[in-house]
Design a binder for these strands. Sequence first.
DNA 1: CTGAAATACTTGAGCGTTCAATTGTGTTTC
DNA 2: GAAACACAATTGAACGCTCAAGTATTTCAG
Lengths: 168, 168
Amino acid sequence: MAETRWLDDGEQNTWRAFLMAVNLLDGALDRQLRHDAGLPHAYYQILAMLSEAPGRELTMTRLARLLRSSPSRLSHAAARLEGDGMIHRHKRPEDRRTVIVEITPVGMKALEDAAPGHVHEVRRVLFDTLSPEQVGQLREISESMLSVLDPQGEEPRYPDPDGIGTRD
Amino acid sequence: MAETRWLDDGEQNTWRAFLMAVNLLDGALDRQLRHDAGLPHAYYQILAMLSEAPGRELTMTRLARLLRSSPSRLSHAAARLEGDGMIHRHKRPEDRRTVIVEITPVGMKALEDAAPGHVHEVRRVLFDTLSPEQVGQLREISESMLSVLDPQGEEPRYPDPDGIGTRD
DNA sequence: CTGAAATACTTGAGCGTTCAATTGTGTTTC
DNA sequence: GAAACACAATTGAACGCTCAAGTATTTCAG
């Protein structure tokens, strides 16, 4: 490895502020959801993604890709969520390797109940503190990072069929 | 709670891009450090903070505050790092409630060995993807979040006595 | 058509974080 | 000076995530 180029003071301060903000933000979101809805943030995201999918179902692999989650993580999560009755899994007949995950009415209910408090928290810790310009800047910054971290990142590519307000 | 104000499309996209970027970024940093240095990112930060402290030591509580960590988390981490010989803990005689943590030569060595690869990764996933203006924007955005998430946040308030280049 | 490779998903161990409870020590208050 | 309170740090159980390994199933190459 070549000579290390250390961070200058501006970068250093930016990096530390960013790290702390992100750590605290993640903690705040997770704590709110766990406390008010009994769901970790990651599980909320699973339900949210499923709720928007056509037929409210996706394959495990596709869901994992959309959420930028490892298959393993999703599998563990699915086991818990299925135990709670929030999702249902079954093998696809045409290709018995793949598993279809579907959000159940119980899961939809949990999601809808959790959504308002969650969105409120997201506003409190993020959007309420930023000007509209900053929101735009944050988006571009995030997409810059994604271009390196997830070059082939895929978006959900389908019309939002019956989007209720529960997208997070 | 009042009527929920849902996220509009711009906010929605920003939020999701930000979430994904942050998740992937954290994973990338942690993976790099664990793989190359056998340290989780959080533990690296503990060593880094200690390395900059005057006398290379701090009390548990002060260290936890600086890192925005819970006392419990730090305690568990300290147990592991002490087992690895990277830090040393001892009670302060004047107030036997408090514990002083000190980074050992072994810990300094580990930190110095890990620093170049870590900084390289931070550049790769963050600073190399951003323009100088974006770095400034990100700093202001992060500080906005911190003003809500950590209103009384404290900075390390001491001159950097013999700062080597290992600050992360 | 058969063996090898690729794909889809699951499993279990290890580990870091969280939360609630606990221990030990100093500081107030009456 | 004793009781109540505040503070510093630790502990253990529960739990989600990671990584490496494993099981099916399908596709592909010769």
